[in-house]
Each structure stands twice: as C-alpha cells, then as structure tokens.
Design a protein around this nucleic acid. Structure first.
Lengths: 344, 344
DNA sequence: TTTGTCCATGTGAACGTGAACATCGATCGG
DNA sequence: CCGATCGATGTTCACGTTCACATGGACAAA
C-alpha cells in the first residue's frame, strides 16, 4: 500500500500561473526553457512550481505536441547477457535524451506472438522503434504491418526500409574461424544459432566464408537454440563421429555446453578438441578451460541504436555506417590441431 | 529511414464517426466495449475504423481519464540473468493486462543516479512502480521522495509503506548452508553480495542463522560485488589462509569465479573445498564442476510483482503473502568435508 | 390514452498543455 | 520626436478522448 495524500486533482499549469501571478503561457515558457522571460519572473514561477509540487502532465503535452517522447523496444530475451545488456544501455541512452522506453518482450517467436507484441507497442504512440529481436520472421511481420514510425534494427535483412546498425558479425565469426585455421585445424564444425535469427545466419556465413577460403572440408552446421543445454546435447552427438578437431559455437552458452559434453566424455579441450564461442559473456574467462570467444560491445550497440533512432525521429539522420567490429579474445579453450581420430 | 505515408494528421474518433454516420460518442462506446450498442451499429463503426486505419490516441485518453496504463520499473541490471529474466516476465505479465512498462535502469548506485532515474519515472505518469533494484539506498530515496503511486519491491525493508514480494531468501541461504553442514563442513566462509543490497543481506542472514544454530565458528563474510571477477579475486585471497572447507557464495557468478581461483591453485572442488552458489543460472549445471546452488524462479517473481502491483493500482489488493521459497539444487561442486589443512 | 422506464444514441463540456497571434511598453535609428 | 522593432507577456484556440447529461422512440403498466 502506498500513501495517498492526494486531495483533489494534481496542480496544473494554471494553478502555478495563478500563484505566480502570471499567465499559464508564461509558466509553459518557463517549463520549456523559452528565452524571453525575465529572470525575476522565471524565478517566481519556479518557486510557485516548487510550492505546489507541480509536475507537468505528459499526456496533455503529448496530446498537443503529438510527441510522446517514448520509444519502443521489441526484444526477445530470456535473461541472456547480450540482449539484456544492450537493453540496459538503450534505457540509459534514451533517458539521457529525455526519452522513455517501452519494452515488449517476445515470449515465443510465433508470428502470432510477434504481431501481438508489435501491435501492443504501436498502439502506444511511440516515436520510434528499436528491434532487438532480429529474427527473420519479425521483419516479415514488420514489413507486412506498414509501420509508420522510424525503426532501427540490429542487422539489415537487405529488404525493408529502415536503418540497421552495422555490426560486423560476419567479420567476427570469420576471425574466430580463421583463428582455428591458423592453429592448424582442418576439420571444424559450427554449432549455429536458430536458423531464423539474423545473427545466427551472419555468424554462419562468416564461418563458411573462412572455411571455403581456406579450402577446407565443409561440415554441415548444426542448428541449435543458443542454450547451454543444447550445446551439451550437440556435444554428445558430435562425439559419436569425432570427425573434427575444433568447434566454433554460435554463442558462448552453447560453447560451454559443448565443453561440458566433451569433459563428460573424457575428451580434452583444447588438447583434443578446440572450442571457440561468441559474445564474451562475463563467465567466459572463468569457466574451464577459459573460453576463446568473440567479444561484443553490447552496451555500445544499445547506445548506437538509440543515437541512430533519435536521429531519424528528429529528422537529422546520424551517420551510422561506422561498423562495430567485434574482436577475438584468445583464451585457453583453443589450441593447436591434432590428428583427427574419428572414423572419417 | 522509414516510410512516411502520413498525409494530414491521424484519423480521430470523429473521422470514424462521420464515416460510420454516428456520433463520436458512439464510436467511443464501441471502442470501450459498452453494452447498449446495436450489433449493426457496432459493425458499421468497426468497419469505418478498419477503413481509416484508426488507432486510438493514448495521450488523449490518458488526459481525460488520468490513467496512463503504464507501470514503471526501476532496475539495476547489467545483463545479469536474474533481474533480466524477472523484467522480461514483468513485461509479459503487464502486457497481458494491457499495461505498458517503462523501465529505468540504474547505471550506478549513487544517490544522485537513483534520484535521477526515479524522477524520470515519476515525471512520466505511471500508475505504479516496481522496484527491482533492492538496494537499501533506493528505499531511503523512495521514502524521502513521498512517492504518490503504489509500489512493490522485492523485499521489505521493514520500514516504508508498500507491498513487498515475499521471497524467502533467508530460507534459501539457510538451506544452502545447512546442506554444507550436513556434509560435515564446520568451517564455512560466505562470500556475500554488496552490503547495501537487501538480497545480499538476507542471504547473509540465512547463512549466519544456519552457522550459529549449528554452533560453528563464524567466519567474517567477505563483501563482494556479485561479479565473477570478484569471486576469482576473493578465491585467491581466501587460499592464503585456507582455514575453511566450504564456501557459500551469494550468487552463482561469484561461485564460478571462486572455483576458477581454486582450480588455478590446484585445489580440488569438491575434494578439498566445496562451493555452493545462489540463483541457478543456466550455466550452473554446465561449468566444472556443476554447481550446487539455490534455484530461484525469476519469472514467477516478475509475474507476482505485476499481480501485486496491479491489485494495488485497481484498489483490489491481491494476497501476496504466499512466500516464494527457493529450492536447493545439489550438484557436484559440494561434497563431504575433509580436514582443514590451513593454518588455523 | 397516459406515464414511466429502458434502450440506443447524441450533445456539450472538460482534461492540461503548447502554438499562433495579439498586446503593450521600451528602445532605437533617422 | 515618431514610426519601427523587439522583448516580455497575455489571450484564444485546438489537440482527441471520455464523462455527464439530454433526447427520442419503443414498450409495458396503469
């Protein structure tokens, strides 16, 4: 229960005006930092606001300006480090600019759920939208709904008319794979993220690019769901063939799951199999063995997304072409290749 | 860039009324599901709305009803699993009830930052507030700001006039500690969370209760910051004395850091030292050794918080006394006690 | 028939704010 | 010294919705 000291209704701009002995418009001007107000008047108005504990009514303001000062974020996180960090950064950055953030979280990736969440956000009068749920389907839905606000996504789908944050996931994945190749690995397996995630697709592409360039045998990637549990499961499956010396996982969670499976089977990492992940979650350096992975600046991603979006919203587009390039962090989970001991 | 097919301004309730050949009030009634509307009329209005792609203006509605259908969440997460999961659940639950969620994230725990974030949220006309940043300071600030909306926190501070979600962290910590005691450990160290976190305090209390009840020596708890890095650091420090056989960490991240330090020093877990964490993050079962920890239903926490808050908002309080009791999950990181080999 | 009640709908006002325009005095250039 | 300009402030209106109340017709009870 909370206190309810409310007597009548909240004080309005007119109450302040009356107390300060000015017109309501003058109060409005003070509120909005208008210039031609005498210092003395401004002072008087401020005191009146203070005395009445006046708080501007956002609804009234939004009604008359048709600007809600709110942006929407469509996300799909179940507590994962990456998206959560980016969202936190988005909130900070938006607040910094006086904007509010409304988040809608995707519980499932069914088209119905996506549409429902999106409708929810759009019913709210948001000025712009950040799409942190880079699933292909989301963009299809987005395209079909004729969104009438600017929106920014994490990665361009190629089609669609919006700004995309340029994070070079392909380069990151490529660097990770190249690292393994440089270590002498010739049989590398990729455990990818869900097929319909744009990020998963980009990482897979980077992997394939590197493998093809090096003229290595192409193992068919395994499609996972980003979870450590899946990594564990995939690791067990992979060991049945054992026709590889390294695994590049689409994210750190799956990488840890893989290492768990290898450990269970008595297979040494990196002695027998090298493992590389993607994301550089805080635990990456504390697991055993410390995980070689691709570091991403999630906070930076969030901040850039906000800058890009608010640029569009204000009609002064910001240059967002400067790519964010993730960097490889080499740790103990990757090492020189050994002979393949599998059946192949 | 986004398309801008907007000609004039968005269609209003009156435009719909004109097209349907009724009064604006009839449209409003259809919108709000009022009863006494002829089916045929309702149908005609619906078609007109469809034809004009009419979307109700939230600001206008909020202005006249003085209900924003928005709740605020004050959080303090940097991507950690627990809070992020709860927030995701809050969003789902709120959306389910037609509510929007505005989140403000605490970048630092300085009083200034707290006040700033809180002011931001309260300037927005939220109907209620969920405090997911259970730091003592936050409540002090809250108390000092004379909040005029209902709010719900994760844990009662004892003082303050609000609803608190009853999660029995004390019981969880107690169970974890008792588990170690049952295994024969007599020298148990607690690596706690930041002193000003209510959760950290509760977990420490649970630990101390169990230790005192068992009449064991009380090691002074080490105050950490929830991070794996700190756990690693603390582990190194602890090994200098080695006057314990088990560690109970305030959360899983620190527990993993501790195990990392022990591993580096060649100390076997659980052979020489047992480790228990708190939270049951998804990686807990995949690290080496799999971590014994206390499982928390973060999603449930979020859902309950929303139910509790909306109950207050609607003036029909929900019974929230039913405690959420975390459960111990026993894995390989804890085992029977061995003799203390340290100096003590 | 008359009166009252209920249903379906309409009319007018109000919510709190900012934009556009109006006003009034002071200052300035010629 | 007079019109022009500018600074400081006031007046009126519109934003899109819901609320309180009004209207008119159908139907039942008297």
């Amino acid at each position: 229960m909370s206190p309810e000291p409310q007597k009548g209704r909240a004080p309005s701009i007119r109450d302040v005006a009356r107390l300060a002995g000015v017109s309501h418009q003058t109060v409005s001007r003070v509120l909005n930092g208008h210039e031609s107000i005498r210092d003395e008047t401004r002072q008087r108005v401020r005191e009146a606001m203070e005395a009445l504990k006046y708080r501007p009514n956002r609804a009234a303001r939004a009604l008359v300006t048709s600007r809600s000062r709110t942006i929407g974020v469509l996300s799909a996180t179940h507590g994962e480090y990456g998206p959560s960090s980016s969202i936190a950064a988005i909130e900070d950055a938006a607040r910094d600019q006086g904007y509010y953030v409304n988040t809608a979280n995707l519980a499932s990736s069914s088209p119905g759920a996506i549409i429902e969440a999106l409708k929810h956000l759009l019913l709210q009068d948001i000025e712009g939208l950040i799409v942190m749920a880079p699933q292909v389907r989301v963009f299809d839905v987005l395209a079909g709904m004729a969104i009438d606000v600017p929106y920014v996504s994490l990665q361009s789908t190629g089609h669609g008319d919006h700004r995309a944050l340029a994070i070079d996931q392909i380069a990151g994945a490529r660097a990770a794979t190249q690292h393994l190749i440089d270590l002498g690995h010739e049989e590398i397996v990729h455990v990818a993220g869900p097929q319909d995630w744009i990020e998963a697709e980009a990482r897979m592409r980077g992997f394939l690019d590197a493998v093809i360039d090096a003229d290595l045998r192409t193992h068919p990637p395994i499609l996972g769901d980003w979870s450590a549990d899946f990594g564990y499961f995939a690791g067990k499956e992979l060991l049945r063939y054992r026709d590889f010396t390294a695994v590049f996982a689409g994210n750190d969670l799956m990488a840890v799951g893989l290492m768990h499976a290898f450990r269970d089977a008595g297979v040494d990492v990196p002695g027998e199999i090298s493992v590389v992940g993607f994301d550089d979650i805080p635990l990456a350096q504390h697991v055993w063995p410390p995980l070689t992975t691709v570091h991403q600046e999630f906070g930076e991603v969030g901040r850039r997304a906000v800058a890009l979006l608010l640029g569009e919203v204000r009609g002064t587009p910001v240059d967002g072409d400067e790519e964010i390039v993730p960097s490889l962090v080499t740790r103990a989970s990757s090492g020189p290749a050994h002979a393949v001991v599998g059946r192949y």
